[in-house]
Design a binder for these strands. Structure first.
Length: 467
RNA sequence: GUGAGCGUAGCUCAGCGGUAGAGCAUCGGACUGUGGCUCCGAGGGUCGAGGGUUCGAAUCCCUUCGCUCACCCCA
């Protein structure tokens, strides 16, 4: 603490340090594997885009665009250019759509399935599970198809991922005839114990340009009649965005909101049909869901299907994933007509929070627990150092994790360090070892010590690492 | 943008008017080629910052900054 004002991370951003960063890599790796089995390929996107892209797609009246984006003028750009205003991406669906159009992906065979992994930026007040730089794992399907089976498969993939990564995710088997018969045979239905607090899937349909406007008008009228029972935020939204009133959390507004007209009662025939069939498709896949007519996503581009997954252990911000269908977005951004889209975004920070919330105090803890060292090389004098360097290179080439101190340490000190770093073996390289050509290998948890030549030593350490 | 709680050593915290402490961690010693245990010792703080009250402030008051949680909104 020498400096008067040491540098600190900017508000709302944070470092993810080694033991935890391994979990992040694991989670992201599972996503890659699961998504690949569903035919998705990774798209790597720019961190910033034209501000206009987000204004058009997410919606210029949304909170995200109107007050949460990190926007700046690109210094080198032409004053007249539309590209002058740049924003750090607050979400990635807009970028995926831009890339889809830019690269003519509508000519690709079949549906275009893409996933992305990376940071997003929103200038909000930080709180538990919410950061100004946060991370998302997202997936999008773009193409001609808008069949509910596709929506259901995207949700299935999401839940398979959650389960693989270790969240308690209720996910039954696919309901074939044979599966139904088996189910009926077993007398006791195996309901999940309530204390497990599994993730919950909420679904809704928010209609399409054919039916939503008239519903919004009805809702607005209904809201006007109860205006005096609403708080200032909700009163303001009666004009700006009546749908947003629905997901208010104010206790004082809950009773009134329950009396409002519900969009699911005002869908057009096509949207109604789509929503009903979505539910059938979810049931077919053994996916439990909860209808939530108040689930209104905050982005303008959504149509029909919207969904959200909440997980335990997260505080007030308990949504780990949000998603939905956005059938008009590609065209809105100047792309080809009739390209439909559906996708989701998982909040990685929140996912990790929920995983860490599960009690899991097994095994060694601390720095030593994660990346376990296979060997700590102990050399006694500068004459033995070259032999240690050579051995380190050989062991590492074999894939072992090796620590080689580069300053002379007393033996006592070296073994103590090896122990603290959680090494499995200490290899002693001193005068005796050089003279005999045999290294001394000490197994640190048992204290057993043996002597062996280089080839045997490597085999020995390899073998122990395989279990 | 609004509200509440909290800021003392690297970490977790005690002290709450009399001039800075503990545990853990780090480093050294007891212990010259044998770690985990024990014992001894050391380093490390403008008690978040600024102002006020007082003979005297880490302690009381005000302001400010930071962190956390919540509202808002979203992942």
């Amino acid at each position: 603490m020498r400096n008067r004002r040491p540098f600190r991370a900017i508000k709302g951003v944070r470092d993810i340090l080694p033991p935890e960063s391994e979990q992040w890599n694991r989670v992201e790796q599972v996503a890659r594997e699961v998504f690949a089995t569903y035919g998705f390929g990774e798209i790597r996107l720019p961190i910033f885009e034209s501000t206009e892209l987000f204004a058009r797609s997410v919606g210029s009246e949304t909170d995200i665009v109107s007050k949460e984006m990190y926007t700046f003028a690109d210094a080198g750009a032409d004053e007249e250019s539309r590209e002058t205003q740049i924003s750090l991406r607050p979400e990635a669906t807009a970028s995926v759509c831009r890339a889809y159009i830019e690269h003519g992906m509508h000519t690709w065979p079949g549906d275009v399935k893409l996933y992305y992994i990376g940071p997003m930026f929103r200038r909000e007040r930080p709180q538990k599970g919410r950061y100004r730089q946060f991370y998302q794992i997202g997936a999008e399907v773009l193409g001609q198809s808008d069949t509910p089976g596709l929506d259901a498969e995207v949700i299935e993939m999401l839940l398979v991922f959650f389960r693989r990564v270790g969240l308690d995710t209720p996910l039954g088997e696919v309901r074939t005839k044979a599966a139904e018969d088996r189910r009926n045979d077993s007398s006791s239905a195996s309901a999940a114990p309530p204390h497990l607090r599994p993730v919950t899937l909420f679904i809704n349909s928010i209609g399409c340009p054919a039916c939503r406007p008239s519903y919004v008008e009805q809702l607005r009228n209904a809201l006007e009649t109860v205006r005096d029972q609403l708080g200032p935020d909700s009163q303001r939204r009666i004009q700006t965005n009546p749908l947003r009133v629905l997901d208010s959390k104010l206790d004082s507004e809950q009773a009134v909101i329950e009396t409002l007209p519900r969009i699911t009662d005002h869908l057009c025939a096509a949207c109604r049909e789509h929503y009903v069939r979505l539910q059938e498709q979810l049931e077919l896949r053994g996916i439990p869901f909860v209808e939530n007519w108040r689930l209104v996503r905050g982005l303008d581009y959504y149509t029909r299907t919207t969904f959200e997954v909440t997980a335990p252990g997260l505080g007030a911000q308990n949504a780990v994933c949000g998603g939905g269908r956005y059938d008009g977005l590609i065209e809105l951004l100047g792309g080809p007509r009739n390209v439909k889209g559906i996708g989701f975004a998982i909040g990685t920070d929140r996912l990790l929070l929920s995983l860490q919330d599960r009690a899991q105090p097994k095994g060694p803890s601390g720095k030593a627990a994660q990346a376990r060292l296979d060997a700590f090389l102990v050399w006694m004098g500068s004459a033995e150092y070259p032999a240690a360097v050579r051995l380190a290179r050989l062991l590492r080439a074999a894939g072992r994790r090796v620590e080689l101190p580069h300053d002379a340490l007393k033996l006592r000190r070296a073994l103590e360090l090896a122990d603290k770093l959680g090494a499995r073996f200490a290899v002693l390289i001193g005068e005796e070892e050089i003279a005999s050509g045999k290294f001394t290998v000490k197994h640190l948890s048992t204290g057993e010590q043996t002597q062996c030549v280089e080839a045997d030593l490597i085999r020995h350490i390899q073998a122990a690492a395989q279990n």
